[in-house]
């Protein structure tokens, strides 16, 4: 049985990729299992300048999921390159996916340009669901034109595949995905978290200090499958499916929705062995479904 897939010209041993923000820079997980079993992983969202992020509480429990409002805490791209990547090199020997966020086109461009030069980086995953300081309060990921602008600008300064990570909090995700494809994106990843909120009823206040946050976990899986299906039907570039994936079955279902590779997010926080277990279980589920090669799976 063959679990290999090709993601934008780079072969992965399997399609399983821990999602950005749920896997740090890999070391916490490398302490408990050999993370080289992964297809790759998407490292913690990196910005040009260091960021502490939002005040706490940043986390809230939900039925079959959670809300987070971490706010892109990261040491900034210089430290990521100088300190995190050399440490990562010791425990991960495959190309890694560099996840990048920004608050202006210039920031995205500079952060991507710097990470593109690192040998360890295989792909750039550009997260366009942050508040857009540059464009007057609108998120880059909620407007086709803004998403295309970032894509084109990043493509100009990079040589590695650029994957644009889209927000589901939009009226028409397909038009945004197509705009990114037209602007030169090499892939699309979706979905980022759904905007959500919980209230502490005793205190009569939002649980999350930032009021709202991103809802993730198994509860959002059907929404993710639907959006991956819609987007993969409309673009020719590879799509990475994510959102509530928590089992090998979910990985295959996501691929049947049109995903080339699949990210696993919130589940890593609850079961630190989630990705390893999913990878081990994949051949079992493939056998049940009569799938010889994962890459043969066609969009339904």
């Amino acid at each position: 049985m063959n679990t290999k897939v090709n993601l934008c010209g780079i072969q992965l041993d399997n399609p399983v990729i821990p999602a950005s923000g749920t896997f740090g820079f890999g070391y916490e997980f490398a302490e408990i299992y050999d993370i080289n079993v992964l297809g790759t992983f998407s490292f913690k969202g990196t910005t040009l300048a260091p960021r502490f992020g939002n005040p706490t509480p940043r986390i809230a429990e939900c039925t079959a999921g959670m809300i987070n409002a971490v706010g892109l805490q990261n040491p900034g791209v210089e430290k990521v390159i100088a300190e995190e990547l050399p440490k990562l090199k010791k425990c991960f020997h495959k190309p890694v996916m560099a996840n990048v966020s920004g608050f202006s086109v210039e920031e995205y461009v500079e952060t991507c340009r710097l990470l593109d030069q690192e040998d360890q980086v295989g792909w750039l995953e550009v997260n366009v669901s942050c508040p857009n300081v540059h464009g007057g309060g609108m998120s880059f990921g909620t407007s086709p034109a803004a998403a295309a602008e970032v894509t084109a600008a990043v493509k100009k300064v990079t040589t590695k595949p650029v994957i644009i990570k889209l927000s589901p909090n939009v009226t028409d995700i397909v038009s945004i995905a197509k705009a990114c494809e037209d602007a030169g994106a090499d892939g699309i990843s979706l979905i980022n978290t759904l905007l959500g909120m919980r209230i502490d009823m005793k205190r009569r206040k939002p649980i999350i200090a930032n009021t709202m946050g991103g809802f993730s976990g198994p509860a959002i899986f059907p929404v993710a499958v639907r959006m991956v299906y819609q987007v993969s039907g409309a673009v020719k570039i590879p799509v990475i499916g994510m959102g509530g994936v928590s089992s090998a079955k979910d990985v295959i279902e996501m691929m049947m929705a049109g995903a080339t590779a699949v990210q696993v997010g919130a589940m890593n926080l609850v079961n630190p062995f989630a990705c390893k277990e999913i990878i081990e279980q994949l051949p079992v589920e493939m056998a049940k479904l009569g799938i010889e090669n994962l890459s043969d799976i066609k969009r339904v």
Partner: peptide, 22 residues
């Protein structure tokens, strides 16, 4: 004490500032 996501350092859900860094 803080509300935690993972409890083992992966999610940055329970960060705080100190005089010796985050």
């Amino acid at each position: 004490e803080e509300r935690m996501g993972c409890g083992f350092g992966a999610c940055m859900g329970c960060s705080c500032k100190t005089l010796t860094g985050n």
